[in-house]
Simulated scan of single mutants.
Amino acid sequence: MLVALLPTFTQAQQTDQTPDQLVAEARSKVQAFGSSLKQALQSAIKEGGLANGIAVCNTVAPEIAAQNSNDGWQISRTSLRVRNPDNTPTDWQEMQLKAMQEHPVKNGKPVEIWRIGNTDTGNGFEYMRAIPTQKLCLGCHGKSIDPGVQAKLNELYPQDQATGFSEGDLRGAFIVTYRPETN
């Protein structure tokens, strides 16, 4: 499901990209970030178990996000139940997450929404794509977490709220923003 809000950029922040081009670029950024993160997690878990995967999420995920954030584009993640308080959603993001919560997947695809114009963080483009909880996620985000894994979570994320999920639940969302350069 794609929902679009279409106010315009201010004159100082015009972009030569159409809304379809912006959405396509956001999807590409999410795909690159998600694929790299999943690969890094699977490799870390294979090498040293789930606790090793948590360490990768803690250090490597921000690095992967930074690699995919350039030329006015920024990628991050958020959730209604964050693991890292730095990923707390804005008011608009929280509203969208609540709307996505009942059906994070529609027609076999994660729900997405976007807007152009005055966003919570300034004028530009903001895109969200639901992250449904996958089987791979349950070892660290599920209802039954190994005590060793829970100890590592407590060490790295003392304010963790991101547990208790079941497969298919809305885990969170990818956030992609674009702020064109001002003239």
Rank of each mutant, 00 (worst) to 15 (best):
M1P: 07
V3L: 12
A4L: 15
F9P: 12
T10L: 12
T18K: 10
P19A: 05
Q21C: 08
Q21K: 11
V23M: 08
V23E: 02
A24E: 13
A24R: 10
R27E: 14
S28V: 04
A32V: 03
F33R: 00
G34L: 08
L37V: 15
K38M: 07
A40E: 09
I45L: 05
K46T: 12
E47W: 01
A51F: 00
G53H: 09
G53E: 13
A55G: 07
A55K: 15
C57N: 03
N58H: 13
A66D: 06
A66H: 07
A66Q: 15
Q67G: 07
N70V: 00
D71R: 05
W73S: 04
Q74K: 07
R77W: 03
R77Q: 09
S79M: 02
S79C: 01
L80Q: 05
L80H: 00
L80N: 04
R83D: 04
R83N: 03
P85A: 00
P89T: 02
T90Y: 01
T90G: 01
Q93R: 01
E94D: 04
E94C: 00
M95E: 13
Q96G: 00
K98G: 03
A99D: 02
M100H: 01
P104A: 06
G108W: 01
E112M: 08
I113G: 06
G117C: 09
N118W: 01
N118H: 06
T119F: 02
D120R: 00
E126C: 04
Y127R: 02
R129V: 01
P132R: 13
K135D: 15
L138T: 15
C140H: 08
C140N: 07
C140T: 06
H141L: 09
G142T: 10
S144P: 03
S144Y: 09
G148V: 09
A151S: 14
K152T: 15
E155D: 11
Y157D: 08
P158T: 03
D160T: 08
A162V: 08
F165V: 10
E167A: 12
D169G: 11
D169A: 11
G172T: 11
G172Y: 08
F174Q: 08
I175S: 03
Y178E: 07
Y178K: 06
N183M: 06
